[in-house]
Computed example of a mutant assay.
Amino acid sequence: MSIRTATLAGTAIATTATAVAGSIATDPSSGWYRRLRKPPFQPPSSVFPIVWTALYADLAAISAVALDGLDKRSRPAERRRYRQALAANLLLNAGWSWLFWRGRRPWLAAAECAVLAASSADLVRRTARVSPAAGTALAPYALWCSFATVLTTAIARRNPGR
């Protein structure tokens, strides 16, 4: 499937805005975060920006593929619902950073992250209906969001009252 430049620009702007919003809230060098007890499967802090950059690029490109595929099939209602699902997902994505890092509410962030993981799986499902290959390409995003839910929950469990 080919991607129209305007569609890719729109999804790239949306995912970049999400990345910036999340980055503004994120502070892995804060005393609060350094004092948290973390599980043994916690990746090094340097891994997160690398993984998230790749996942955001994937999300922007694959969402553009799905949106253009829906447009080409003359399904404006499905296209609109996909855009709404993507927007909700991106808001949830950025919201986690604010709940966890700025709000310092690991349990609330874990609950929100579970909703994000479900939303991400829904995007994979919606994308796969348009293009099975594109759905497969988006699956790592949903898997990472699920991992983030497990990790955030583990941090919350190890740090009651924080």
Rank of each mutant, 00 (worst) to 15 (best):
R73Q: 11
L55I: 09
W52Q: 03
R73P: 03
P76C: 08
R75I: 07
L70W: 12
A77L: 12
I62R: 04
A54G: 10
R79F: 12
V65E: 01
V51L: 06
S46K: 07
D68L: 04
A77C: 11
A57T: 07
R73Y: 00
E78M: 08
D68I: 07
E78Q: 13
A57C: 05
A57E: 03
R75V: 11
A66G: 07
W52F: 09
P49G: 01
P49V: 02
L67R: 08
S63F: 11
R73K: 06
S45F: 04
R73V: 09
L59I: 15
A61K: 04
E78A: 13
S63L: 08
L67Y: 10
P49F: 04
S74W: 10
D71S: 15
D68P: 13
R75D: 10
A77I: 14
R75P: 05
A64S: 12
A77K: 14
P76H: 10
A54Y: 07
A61F: 13
D68N: 09
A60D: 00
A64H: 07
T53S: 10
L70R: 04
V65M: 01
A77S: 14
K72M: 04
W52D: 02
S45Y: 02
P49E: 00
D68S: 08
A54P: 05
D71V: 13
D58G: 12
S63K: 09
S46W: 07
I62Q: 04
A57F: 01
V47R: 04
Y56I: 11
R73T: 14
S46F: 05
D58T: 15
T53M: 03
I50K: 04
I62M: 06
R75S: 12
A64L: 05
P76W: 06
S46A: 13
T53A: 07
P76K: 02
R73E: 10
S45P: 06
L70Y: 11
D58M: 14
A77G: 15
K72A: 06
A77V: 15
A64N: 05
Y56W: 15
K72T: 10
R79H: 10
V51S: 07
A57S: 12
P49K: 01
L70T: 13
T53L: 04
S74P: 06
R79I: 08
V51T: 14
Y56G: 08
R79V: 08
I50P: 01
L55A: 03
E78I: 05
I50E: 04
I62E: 02
A66M: 04
S74C: 10
